[in-house]
């Protein structure tokens, strides 16, 4: 049975698209046929992060308007042949999406794919609403700062009251917390909320912590999902998250300040 995953946050710039690209790639690399959809119509970015921007012919809106078939619009990833990207339209806005249209596209994808990752736009308006509406699982991407945490909380409220599962009184969406751009050093200095602080406020199952890492920026610039950079801390953190989502037990990493530990050990700066 196919599962629809929404990557959402409420707030912008917290790492939704980076996360969508990474987990979609992670799932595909583990042998699951996966599609990733960019719901950010008008501000598309996923194609850049996935490095397929020069191969976009048709997009999500074309498929919804039946101007192209799904197969025409899906772009096969250059690194993994089990991963497909459905890019957003850059020349339209969110009103081009309709609930029936999105539902129809997702139903068609479900016939052929194991996982469908929906990269939500920021905000709580139409685009974000449609991205989460049909979801089975939600990855709530949060930065360790108060405004991001509050926006995530708001989004969790919307997931539990405005989704299809909520409206039809089905089993609720599985909600997972992904804490991104985490810096243990800054937590120690009191400049950032800790994992415990965030979990205390959101009381949500923590799927993983992604450390603040320059490998993320490098990956974005080169158009390869950071999960493929197996040496990087962020890449490993995303690999852990995919493994945990698939049911594996993995201890949490990147939460403690290792540098701090050595610093203390050697008593120097």
């Amino acid at each position: 049975m196919a599962r629809v995953i929404v990557v959402t946050s409420g707030k912008g710039g917290v790492g939704k698209t980076t996360t969508s690209a990474a987990i979609a790639m992670g799932l595909a690399k583990r042998g699951h046929k996966t599609a990733v959809i960019d719901f950010d119509v008008g501000l598309r970015n996923l194609d850049l992060i996935m490095g397929c921007e020069r191969r976009v012919v048709y997009d999500f809106v074309n498929v919804i308007n039946e101007e192209a078939t799904l197969n025409q619009a899906l772009i096969r990833d250059k690194n993994c042949n089990l991963l497909y990207i459905l890019p957003a339209s850059q020349t339209r806005d969110k009103d081009a999406l309709s609930q029936e249209g999105v539902g129809r596209v997702l139903d068609e994808l479900k016939k052929d794919f194991k996982y469908i990752v929906c990269d939500s736009p920021a905000g709580i308006e139409k685009g974000a609403h449609l991205a989460m509406y049909f979801a089975d699982d939600a990855f709530v991407v949060t930065n360790p700062e108060v405004s991001s945490v509050r926006d995530s909380d708001r989004m969790l409220g919307i997931l539990s009251s405005k989704s299809r599962r909520a409206e039809q009184n089905e089993e609720p969406i599985n909600e997972f917390l992904l804490l991104t751009r985490y810096s243990p050093e800054r937590v120690k200095l009191g400049e950032m909320l800790s994992v415990d602080d965030v979990q205390d406020i959101l009381s949500l199952h923590l799927l993983g912590v992604i450390p603040e890492s320059k490998s993320v920026l490098n990956a974005s610039n080169s158009g390869t999902p950071v999960i493929l950079d197996e040496k990087s801390d962020a890449g490993q953190a995303y690999a852990d998250i995919v493994a945990r989502y698939l049911g594996e037990e993995r201890p949490h990493r990147f939460i403690d300040d290792k540098k701090g530990f050595f610093r203390n050990l050697f008593g120097g700066k």
């Binding site: 509050r150 909380d153 708001r154 969790l156 409220g157 919307i158 406020i201 009381s203």
Partner: peptide
């Protein structure tokens, strides 16, 4: 279940909540 930011619950009588009530 938790009452999240932006949610609003009205009860015509008493209300018992077994989870957190978020800011907002």
């Amino acid at each position: 279940h938790p009452i999240r930011s932006g949610q609003r619950i009205y009860a015509a009588g008493d209300i018992v909540i077994m989870a957190q009530v978020s800011a907002g």
